[in-house]
């Protein structure tokens, strides 16, 4: 059903990944040579922790974007998960083992609501998820009165601050999730359907793909991962607050786009997104170690995002042209 990308396409994405990896390494080593204090254990850990929660959200966003959708609500779901798990444990007195599954279930339900509305109303997901973003932001403020919730148990705090072999738990979670989701996306038939839907939803529907089910389950996954990130963030910061993760949805989308995914759907990989996340983390770190005015940070990210989108659109256009020329030659040969 799904053809593997031809060798020429593979080489184009490989060039993209190599280019991005080269820039990342150049910034890292360039900063180390000029400023020092970059390739230290402490700095590498801080650098990784700086983007890990956005990174987890970006993994789910990759699936959504490949499918041709967008999920702006992840940052609000992230803060909502923080607040809900905190309130369940600190104020309702639920044990951690119950509060976490309940929170994740609620987050998954929010994702299901996003997906169901996108499918049922046939409205662009930008609008549906923007509505959810604003609704949840209001809910987060209203249920906390603008105050933070804190006072977690040590076992909960471990989820954000604990380490296994010196590596913080959220980073291990990110790596494990990236591996699992990467493998599923590359090899599992159900998830390969995302490329088909993203490329042409109509064609996918005619081919018998249950587009509605795939869409809803993808938004569920996105919200579920945002919920996981929110729970670990509450543990990492020792508090839940409505303002946490503000604009994280844009950083997650930027990571996916910088990683080479076509924002119009149909292409992208988890590996590319991981590179995009690393790029954002490294650029942010470069600004701190160089003490350059951080006002320029968003400029660099924005320019990189525009470049990435430009490159992915050029690749998509060239692929479309090739496809059309193949169709044309087939038509001509049939006459």
């Amino acid at each position: 059903m799904f053809k593997r990308p031809n060798s020429k396409n593979v080489s184009v994405s490989t060039i993209q990944y190599l280019g991005l990896s080269t820039i990342i390494l150049a910034i890292l080593f360039g900063c180390q040579i000029v400023f020092g204090n970059v390739l230290t254990e402490a700095n590498m850990r801080v650098m990784a922790m700086n983007m890990v929660f956005e990174g987890i959200m970006a993994l789910g966003m990759t699936y959504v974007i490949i499918m041709g959708g967008i999920d702006l609500s992840v940052a609000s779901v992230f803060a909502f998960a923080e607040i809900l798990v905190a309130k369940l444990m600190v104020q309702a007195g639920l044990p951690m083992g119950l509060a976490i599954p309940v929170t994740l279930l609620v987050c998954a339900t929010i994702g299901a609501a996003n997906g169901a509305m996108v499918v049922a109303f046939r409205v662009h997901p930008l609008i549906i998820t923007l509505g959810m973003l604003l609704t949840l932001r209001g809910v987060n403020l209203a249920i906390t009165d603008g105050r933070s919730v804190s006072g977690f148990s040590d076992s909960f705090i471990w989820l954000g601050q604990g380490r296994i072999f010196g590596v913080p738990f959220p980073i291990l979670f990110f790596v494990a999730a990236a591996v699992v989701l990467g493998v599923l996306l590359a090899h599992q038939r159900y998830f390969r359907q995302l490329y088909f839907i993203g490329g042409s939803e109509r064609a996918a529907r005619f081919s018998g793909v249950n587009v509605e089910r795939v869409k809803i389950s993808t938004y569920v996954l996105s919200s579920f991962l945002a919920g996981c990130a929110g729970i670990m963030a509450a543990a990492a910061f020792g508090a839940a607050h409505w303002g946490h993760g503000n604009l994280a949805e844009l950083r997650a989308i930027a990571a996916v786009a910088i990683g080479g995914a076509d924002i119009m759907g149909g292409s992208g990989t988890i590996f590319g997104t991981v590179l995009g996340v690393i790029f954002l983390a490294v650029v942010h770190n470069a600004f701190v170690v160089s003490a350059v005015n951080p006002f320029w940070y968003d400029v660099v990210n924005g320019v990189m995002l525009l470049l990435a989108v430009l490159v992915s659109r050029l690749i998509a256009q060239s692929n479309t042209k090739k496809l059309l020329s193949i169709k044309q030659s087939k038509l001509e040969s049939s006459f």
């Binding site: 204090n37 230290t40 402490a42 700095n43 850990r45 801080v46 650098m47 922790m49 700086n50 933070s148 963030a233 910061f237 607050h241 303002g243 946490h244 993760g245 503000n246 604009l247 770190n285 701190v288």
Partner: peptide, 14 residues
């Protein structure tokens, strides 16, 4: 976003 401030403090310490 106070969590971004917390990360900035960690970064300066590193």
């Amino acid at each position: 976003d106070a969590s971004a401030e917390a990360r900035a403090v960690d970064q300066l310490v590193a």
